[in-house]
Nucleic acid binder design. Structure first.
Lengths: 211, 211
DNA sequence: GTCTATAATTTGATAGAC
DNA sequence: GTCTATCAAATTATAGAC
């Protein structure tokens, strides 16, 4: 036990495991899944493979854990925002988009890897257990996207957003925000808050009617 | 000769070469650079490696050619739009965004790989010639992005767009559009024109002032 | 728990027949 | 111009010492 992916919602794993996880996330973020070797991860850890394979059965299992934790983190952050029914939909969407943008810019490796999750199809030949974890990730991503779609739907109902299929409308919103991790690199003088504000305004206004 | 990457602006390559290129683009698009083996490409070609290595010196060279052709194609498409100074900036941006969205959805493999070009850092250890081609690609991408930034700047000058740094404004625009290739898959009933229109409207409105 | 081999496989690239 | 080996290197994963 404690050897497979899917710690998922079952609480914090032991410390050694988390160290491996974080080191792996760093490298996965930089090079992607395939281009990352287990030796690369070990190097970041300042150890050898032995340590990694003590905690994880395979490279894919590590990757899946990174994905899982990232999505759980994002879900934890979006829920309190989605529940703020006191805010009008445009302000709620602004808050949600802002949060997402900030996470893209500030979160250490982990939260960024989730975006790259596209590479997952590399593991389609993987075993049943891995496919189950992968499906769990996809489900969480859909759930996350649905939060945005729901806010959009609210805004349409109230007449402050254009009438577009909410689920489709969520795509360019999350696209504009997720894309941040393709170009943004932390710099001493980069103003994360300003960028997040501007991007949040951009996606909210994108849904507003014109004329 | 005819063995290296960088056919670039030097006109159409011979047919055999293009066949290799298109097959490679297909697989690169699906699996990314690292996860694609030369044997995979050969399989799509219905041949063996020998044929591929007759035209290309390395896998990286093929990838660079795919990137180059994709960007040249996009540049060819954006220029006539950018030059239409008869159109007001918002309509020009709409046309440019629409074009880009359509390319993301319709272009065969080639044009989609350019977006994935992020994986290029995988080749940073590559030789001088490859780095030069890679730099040429980055330059073209910057040039392409600049066309969008210029349209935004025009719109700001005319007071129809919010006052944001044009280059920064181009990021969520291209993010929303590029992200299409992460989720869109061709389907018989999917209405490309409708989606492209909606996304173009979304990014144009995103820049408009509110209140 | 972590390390040092090392096995087993994959893969980029080459050589040489046809 | 394409194919059939085949090499050399990298890489995932395991075994067993400490």
């Amino acid at each position: 036990m404690a050897m497979q992916a899917g710690l998922g919602r079952r609480g914090p794993a032991e410390a050694g495991r988390m160290e491996v996880l974080n080191a792996a996330a760093t490298v996965f973020m930089e090079r992607g899944f395939t281009a990352t070797s287990v030796d690369d991860i070990a190097e970041v850890l300042g150890s050898t493979k032995g340590r990694i394979y003590h905690y994880y059965r395979s490279k894919a299992d590590i990757f899946l854990d990174v994905l899982t934790l990232s999505m759980l983190d994002l879900l934890d952050r979006i829920r309190p925002i989605a529940e703020r029914r006191d805010l009008p939909p445009d302000e709620r969407l602004h808050a949600a988009a802002r949060m997402h943008a900030v996470v893209m810019m500030t979160q250490s490796a982990r939260s960024r890897v989730a975006v790259q999750g596209t590479e997952m199809h590399l593991m389609q030949e993987a075993g049943t257990k891995q496919r189950r974890v992968l499906q769990a990730f996809v489900d969480m991503r859909d759930e996350y996207e649905q939060y945005f779609a729901d806010i959009v739907a609210d805004g349409i109902r109230e007449g402050i957003f254009r009438d577009v299929p909410p689920r489709l409308a969520a795509k360019p919103i999350l696209g504009a925000l997720n894309w941040i991790n393709m170009w943004y690199r932390p710099r001493p003088d980069s103003d994360i808050d300003k960028i997040a504000d501007e991007f949040a305004t951009f996606v909210v206004n994108g849904l507003r009617p014109f004329d």
